[in-house]
Every structure is written in C-alpha cells, then in structure tokens.
Design a protein around this nucleic acid. Structure first.
Lengths: 137, 137
DNA sequence: TACAAATTCTATTAAACCGATAGAGTTTAG
DNA sequence: CTAAACTCTATCGGTTTAATAGAATTTGTA
C-alpha cells in the first residue's frame, strides 16, 4: 500500500501537471486543489524538490513547478522516493537490496526467486504509469 | 514490502510442504527448520489455521500440517491474510475496498484508474507464485 | 527600507503498528 | 497423573506515520 505521503505526492504532481506551462503554484493552491493538509504538503514538496521532480521559487509570488516531463515521472519513482523498495523483500530489491538475516544455510533465501519474478512484473507495470497517463483520465 | 509475519508464514508453509505426507510438525521443529522465533511462529500458525491453510493436532505428539494443496496456496492469499490489500490504495482494492477520504469532487479519485491497472497485474503475478513453485527451486 | 508573502528548516506530537516475548490455560497420549 | 504440545490474551519497547508548530530565510514591491 502507498503511504499518505506518496499518495499526496502523486496528487500534487498531478495538480502541477494540469496547470498551464510556466505557471507557478503556491503550496496553499495545491493543498486546496488536491485536498492535502498544507503543512504536510510543504514537506512533501521539499522531498519532491530534492528528488528533482519539481523546483521552486522562493519569496513573494514564489511557488512550485514541474521540472521533469510528466511523461517521465513514473509511479515507480515516486514509490521509491517515499515508500522505498518495490520488491516484497529486501533480498529481492534492486535499489534497496539487503541480505535476509534469517536465511542461514543458503546464500539465497527460499523465497527470493519467486519474489524476483513479482518484482520484475510489478516494476514494469509501475514504470508504465506516468503522471501524464493519470492526467488524461 | 512483506511484513516479517508474512515472510515467516511463507517459510513455515514451505517447511510443511517439504515434509512427508501425513507428517505432523511441531512448532519448535518449524521454528528451528525455518529460523523463526518460536513464540512469534505460534501466533502465525494460529493465523494460518484460522485461514484454513493448515490444521493442527493438539496435545502430546501434536503439531501442524497442511490441509490445502501446496499448488493452491498462493502468495496473493498469504499477503492478504497477513498484510492486507494487494492494491496500492484502498480505493483500488478488491478485497479491502474503502473510498478515499480526501477525494472530494469526483467519486473516483484521480489515481484510482492507474492503480487498478497495477493491482490487476500484480495480483496476477502473485497468484502465479504458489508454495509448490517455491519448493522446487 | 519596510513589509508582506512565500519557501525552508527543525522539532515535536499523538497515535498506530510491528516484532517479539511472557505466561497461563487447554488438550491429549501414554 | 504427567509431560508435551497447541491455544489464548496481554504486554512491551521501538519505530514509523501523519500531522502540526513555529522560527528562519528569501524575494518582490510600495
């Protein structure tokens, strides 16, 4: 399941993607438009900025805007940024790999092989969902 | 990601599936064999019993055994039993459906459509992973 | 320069969840 | 009767999550 943070991030990106080119959106606009608690959204937007999905303009008349094409922002990336690994166990993860602590005998745990299959399919599916694909609903 | 409970459940089922037909496994056997904390495993086995995956014999010489074919126990089922919905949001879930609280205007939230696609693919993949498919590694 | 409007940063909170443990109760074979 | 096993309920500490608070900084403009 997605965390609220990830869900809000997607909705915020969606909001930004729906604005006119060159429009700068204030946090409060996005919060109201997408029904997200404003102070919580502030943190999320900073995370999205650190992740190079959006950029900001500070000071009066400042706000946020997309710096990555809506065709290139995928669900997989947002999941990774806010909720971490897409795989079901760390030992089956590409970006968040960790060996299982409780698999004593074999170097690969008994579940790993099956979970790698799941990860590949899920990842492929999640890479197919872009902000653009969500906009034109 | 899978919870430890779900992971341990899979490993315990795997252990049971590897035993001879009609063999009854004590909790401590399974715990040692699959490297799972025994008291934690007790709870998990009870959950698996309530879920009709295993049954038990009480008293001396008692223990646990599979009552569902290892070909019919899927990752999807175990995920649902221990970790709940497979979908990324409740509004995209079949078995754990709940409407989004923060989607005010439309009855369907902007993310739902995309997440339904993910759920269908992930679910299909997870239904393809059975205990039997994990045993013959 | 002063002010207002906005982002940025750090801290804190309350609640929920998670992994694990403890211990008493019940059942059964011998 | 007893030992061995499952069953049940409670609890615990730690972590995470969702959200809030407030001070600091940046910027445009009158």
């Amino acid at each position: 399941m997605l965390s609220h943070k990830a869900k809000y991030a997607l909705k915020a990106l969606l909001y930004l993607a729906e604005q006119d080119e060159n429009h700068i959106s204030r946090t409060i606009e996005i919060a109201d438009g997408a029904n997200i608690p404003k102070k919580f959204l502030e943190q999320i937007l900073l995370d999205l900025k650190r992740g190079r999905f959006v950029s900001s303009k500070q000071g009066k008349f400042g706000g946020y805007y997309l710096i990555k094409s809506k065709n290139e922002i995928t669900l997989a990336e947002i999941h990774r940024l806010f909720d971490g690994a897409i795989a079901l166990l760390p030992c089956a993860s590409l970006n968040f790999y960790e060996p299982c602590s409780d698999c004593k005998t074999e170097s690969e745990c008994s579940l790993r092989h099956g979970l790698l299959l799941i990860r590949d399919k899920t990842l492929k599916a999640m890479e197919g969902i872009t902000i653009a694909s969500l906009v034109k609903k």
